[in-house]
């Protein structure tokens, strides 16, 4: 199971990103543990400059803007 974290301070783009990842994971039948990190101090631990950012198993795979559906599919 993949552990996915979405980093973002709670803007609309971050919420859309979370929803989109859930959708794609459901559609592909991939089991994921999705966590949203909104606390700015925790976000800064990951060294990202732009949010929303996506971290999978400790590695930053995306930062800044909503990831495209194809990009998300490529993670699974």
């Amino acid at each position: 199971m993949k552990i996915i974290k979405v980093l973002g301070t709670g803007c609309a783009n971050c919420k859309t990103t979370v929803k989109l990842i859930e959708e794609v994971a459901n559609a592909l039948n991939v089991e994921i543990a999705l966590k949203k990190i909104e606390d700015i101090q925790q976000i800064m631990m990951f060294n990202v400059l732009s949010t929303p950012a996506v971290v999978i198993d400790g590695e930053i795979v995306h930062s800044g803007g909503i990831p495209s559906r194809e990009k998300i599919e490529s993670w699974f």
């Binding site: 783009n13 060294n47 990202v48 732009s50 800044g64």
Partner: peptide
Amino acid sequence: TPFCSCSAIPLFIGF
């Protein structure tokens, strides 16, 4: 530089 106001804080600290 692409900028969204929701990224202002991470950007600020990162800089």
